[in-house]
């Protein structure tokens, strides 16, 4: 009988303890660092992989301009800190056949004192823009170099999500195909690109293509301007239509 009593009391106690409020899941991981989209796009999943690659050309800069800066969004994961936190960048080799950028020749090396001080997440903040200082090397006149880089472990940060720890920037001193070149203008060629610049007076760089994407009718306008000017050019040069650097006829669809 005593056993039954104990059993019933134990059952009662167990019942009382059966439910309890689940504790909130708190972030207990270490602080991590990674790249991300523009800060206005961080809640739009379609932009998670935006800005992984940026293309830059010095061709629009004054000849006296020997360096320029490309910016990438960097995010600290795991909350803010009450002190400034330093992160590190590290070049990695692009093994896809690209011409890899040379530190302090094609870009300011990531351990160059003039840039390391910029690689900081300020106290109380989660985001910053990391400057990549590109140098106008002689190589760029004849080639396009690629700087593939990633965030590296530092005293303040471990690495973030694998898919967002790298970025790439290409640099040249010639016209190059903007990443967001529109299919509305057909196959890219340097000759076509230069023709578009000549007949419209526009840069036709990444920023301009981004602007065009906000107004489809403006895109149509420039499509027809280029198309019309090409017809005029070809009529003015009978038997010598505009051909690109590969010898192919330049056409706008």
């Amino acid at each position: 009988m005593k056993t039954t009593k104990y059993f019933m009391v134990a059952l009662l106690l167990l019942t009382l303890g059966a439910c309890k409020k689940e504790a909130y899941k708190m972030f207990t991981d270490v602080a991590r660092i990674q790249f991300g989209p523009d800060i206005t796009r961080i809640y739009q999943t379609s932009f998670n992989m935006a800005d992984t690659t940026k293309d830059f050309t010095f061709v629009y800069n004054l000849p006296t301009n020997k360096q320029d800066t490309v910016w990438f969004d960097v995010y600290a994961i795991g909350g803010v800190s009450n002190k400034d936190r330093t992160f590190k960048l590290q070049q990695i080799a692009d093994t896809t056949g690209a011409l890899n950028a040379v530190p302090d020749v094609d870009y300011k090396a990531f351990n160059n004192a003039s840039v390391t001080s910029k690689y900081v997440i300020k106290a109380g903040e989660r985001h910053t823009l990391a400057p990549i200082v590109l140098l106008r090397s002689a190589t760029l006149k004849t080639a396009k170099v690629t700087l593939l880089f990633k965030v590296a472990v530092s005293d303040d940060f471990q690495l973030g999500e694998t898919t967002n720890i790298w970025r790439k920037v290409t640099s040249t001193d010639r016209l190059s195909k903007p990443t967001n070149w529109s299919p509305a203008f057909g196959t890219y060629s340097v000759v076509k690109h230069q023709f578009m610049i000549d007949v419209t007076g526009k840069k036709w760089d990444q920023a301009f293509f981004s602007f065009l994407q906000t107004d489809y009718t403006l895109m149509l306008y420039y499509t027809n301007v280029c198309k019309t000017e090409l017809i005029i050019y070809n009529k003015a040069n009978p038997g010598k239509p505009l051909v690109d650097e590969t010898g192919a006829l330049v056409v706008f669809p």
Partner: peptide, 8 residues
């Protein structure tokens, strides 16, 4: 997207 202007 457009701003009310006609194309070429």
């Amino acid at each position: 997207s457009n701003v009310g202007q006609f194309a070429a």
